Computed example of a mutant assay.
Amino acid sequence: MQHATLCYPIEDERVLLIRKKRGLGDGKYVGPGGKLEAGETPRECVVREVEEEVGVTVRDPEKVGEFRFVFGDDPRMYVHVFRAYDFEGTPTETPEADPEWFAFDDVPYDEMWDDDRLWLPHLFEGETFEGTFRFDADGEEMVDHELTFGVAL
């Protein structure tokens, strides 16, 4: 199972999302992040990935969640989810991502993965969570999920 990260920089009741330009989730809005490299911790990965994808340096990202994603019978990804209130830099478009700020009430859930609407509002509220999301083999439709809030990470 591939380990990866997601980060949600937050400022003034707004969240920074990216529209993916390539790879898994191409065309969808997601949090910046990516796959762990050999010997890298999830925290090191999320700092590196946010910097590479949008030119923003997150400081002291807070781990708030862990998810397992299964596509068909294939356990695909284990994702470490972070929230960041302290960061510097101006979000900049890259070959990987087009960043955009959204008010919490205006998050484009209809252009995101099906699971995001279930847990992202809880991230905005400061909660922690863990879960498993099962999608069809193509990753197009969520078919089942388990989700727990208020977990110790």
Rank of each mutant, 00 (worst) to 15 (best):
P99Q: 05
P99H: 05
E100T: 15
E100L: 12
W101P: 05
W101K: 07
W101V: 01
W101Q: 03
W101S: 06
F102E: 07
A103N: 13
F104Q: 04
F104M: 04
D105N: 07
D105A: 08
D105K: 12
D106C: 05
D106P: 03
D106F: 05
V107N: 08
V107M: 07
P108K: 01
P108E: 10
P108S: 08
P108V: 10
P108D: 12
Y109R: 13
Y109N: 13
Y109V: 13
Y109E: 06
D110G: 09
D110L: 06
D110P: 05
E111W: 00
E111R: 15
E111I: 09
E111S: 11
M112H: 07
M112K: 00
M112E: 03
W113R: 15
W113C: 15
D114F: 03
D115L: 02
D115R: 09
D115A: 14
D116E: 11
D116N: 13
D116G: 03
D116Y: 10
D116P: 02
D116K: 07
D116H: 14
R117V: 15
R117K: 13
R117A: 13
L118G: 09
L118A: 02
L118F: 07
W119H: 10
W119T: 03
L120V: 15
L120H: 11
L120D: 04
P121D: 02
P121Q: 01
P121I: 11
P121C: 05
P121F: 02
H122S: 12
H122C: 09
L123Q: 07
L123V: 15
F124E: 07
F124W: 15
F124T: 14
F124M: 10
F124D: 07
F124L: 10
E125M: 02
E125T: 06
G126V: 03
G126Y: 00
G126L: 00
G126K: 07
E127Y: 14
E127P: 02
E127C: 06
T128I: 09
T128M: 01
F129T: 08
F129L: 10
F129R: 04
F129S: 04
E130K: 08
E130A: 08
E130S: 14
G131H: 00
G131F: 00
G131V: 00
G131L: 00
G131Q: 01
T132P: 08
F133G: 11
F133A: 09
R134K: 06
R134L: 13
D136V: 09
A137C: 02
A137F: 06
D138G: 14
D138R: 10
G139S: 06
G139H: 08
E140S: 14
E140A: 13
E141L: 09
E141C: 13
M142R: 12
M142K: 00
M142W: 05
V143D: 06
V143N: 11
V143L: 07
V143I: 12
D144H: 02
D144M: 04
D144V: 01
